[in-house]
Amino acid sequence: MTSVIETHNVIKTYRNSTALDGVNLSLEPGKIYGLLGRNGAGKTTLMSMLTAQGFQTSGNVRVFGESPYENDRVLSRICFIRESQKYPDAFTPKHAFRSAALFFSNWDQAFADRLVDDFQLPLKRSIKKLSRGQLSAVGVIIGLASRAELTFFDEPYLGLDAVARQLFYDRLVEDYALHPRTIVLSSHLIDEVANLLEHVIVIDKGRIIMNDDAESIRGSAFTVVGSAAVVGSFLSGREILHTDNFASLASVTALGVLTPAEKREAAELGLELAPVSLQQLVIRRTLAASTGDLNAVANHSLEVSQ
């Protein structure tokens, strides 16, 4: 399968900070990717480089096999509405959608109209006067209705209430099922999007710290609760992500999958097992990476992918 996006050692430095620190990625067509990470981790910067809206300091980006910079062939297949997207001052949402219709060849006006109804977006109000949520809705509608072969959603939910967010996720899954395409969904609300993702990329301080199939990550770690000594011996030899101690009890999160025999053993030892959500796992990994133990994290990634 030829990849949609291929990056080689992409580095982006600003005067006194490093936004991207050697990013190597390969994205396959027809999948929903989650680009996860904390605020300021480099998600938007990375997407800017991938769409040639921004410029990397060094490294190489290929989209659909070509450099995207000033390349109409490539750009016409991409849609990237950023979280802080600017619109012409005198524009209304209606103007924005009419503009989008001019440039996205797969634009579906009927779908856009339906989304406008869903989000109850005032079409003729000046964009300057929209609420944060309504502004996000404009971006979400352009992203969805463009049906671009490669669509980026940059924290698309800001200011949207729970109902509107659910609506977005529902419409995304429905429309993606009917019109498969490559979607990169950047988010720090991991629990909300976890089940939509086929592949997960976690970025922290400009580095990729996780890059795995979502299904292989799910169940790739577990938490054991019980008497500290028993938990310790049960988990000996395993990679520990996190330990919480409370009196003589310990709650330890470890990487790996337990065999049925090990689960039986845990039960017989009086230990409790709990699943670890993708969000918890990402938080643990990010914190582990922050403490500087990057080698250990790299090993983890390897283990998870096996």
Binding site: T51, Q53, F80, P88, F91, S99, A100, I142, A148
Partner: peptide, 10 residues
């Protein structure tokens, strides 16, 4: 900036 969002080359 809007034109960039619509994938228009500079």
């Amino acid at each position: 900036p809007f034109s960039q969002g619509l994938s228009i080359s500079r």
